[in-house]
Amino acid sequence: MKIGLYFGTFNPVHIGHLILANHMAEHSDLDQIWMVVTPHNPHKNKSTLLDDFHRLHMVHLATEDFAKIKPSDIEFKLAQPNYTVNTLVHLEEKYAHHTFSLLMGEDNLKSLHKWKNYDVILQNHDIYVYPRLEAKGPNREAISSEQENVALKNHPKIHLIDAPVVEISSTFIRNNIKEGKNIRPLVPAKVWEYLDHNLFYKK
């Protein structure tokens, strides 16, 4: 089975995440999308990041009706700070019958060459790149230029996917909750109920 790994803090998970994950599941050769919840880095300021359990539970609530989208807490079990290359090695050992690919935004692709062992990742894993709004405007040419500088633009392991661009951010949702505004259309219904019941992000 071919698995696409969609990493994020999902703080909170919202409809933009689901639209992208579902598009990748339905319009690529990936069999499933695993939404990998990034744990809190103990070496960094926690700020507004909810506890790992709450963010994982909201991803469970958001994806339970999507057969091809699964939550994953795989990084919770790894030493922190962690690197993507370590996660991939761990997954390959644990799920030898699966192959794993990465999902990332076009804006993140330009910094891929700064990742730990990025060449090893590219050698062993496909990368599916979805567009971001800032990459569709005047900045797209600059991003493409940098991709060329690190020999990524035409790399056979990189697949550019014409997925929908949904301009919603978890930061926007958190700020609006704090200001008492209605964010119900921006998150799955069960996620909104969980947020509201626990009074998350209201302070």
Rank of each mutant, 00 (worst) to 15 (best):
K2I: 12
G8T: 02
N11Y: 04
P12W: 01
V13F: 09
H14L: 03
G16I: 01
L20S: 02
L20Y: 00
A21Q: 04
H23Q: 15
H23T: 14
H27Q: 09
H27A: 06
D29N: 11
D29H: 03
M35H: 04
M35D: 12
T38P: 01
N45P: 13
K46D: 12
L50M: 03
L50E: 04
R55F: 01
L56D: 10
H57D: 09
H60T: 13
A62R: 04
E64N: 13
I69L: 04
K70V: 12
K70T: 11
D73Q: 13
P81D: 06
L88A: 05
V89Q: 12
H90R: 08
A96H: 10
H97K: 14
H97L: 10
H98A: 12
L102M: 05
L102D: 02
L103Y: 02
L109N: 03
H113T: 12
W115F: 09
V120D: 06
L122Y: 03
H125Q: 05
D126I: 11
I127R: 02
Y128V: 13
E134G: 07
G137W: 07
G137E: 15
A142M: 15
I143F: 13
S144K: 13
Q147I: 12
Q147Y: 15
N149Q: 07
A151W: 01
L152E: 06
K153Q: 13
H155S: 06
H155L: 00
P156C: 05
K157N: 02
D162E: 09
V165N: 00
V166F: 10
S169F: 03
T171D: 00
R174D: 03
N175K: 12
N176E: 15
I177W: 03
I177N: 05
K178I: 06
K181V: 08
I183S: 02
P188M: 06
A189Q: 13
K190R: 12
W192F: 14
D196T: 15
K202C: 11
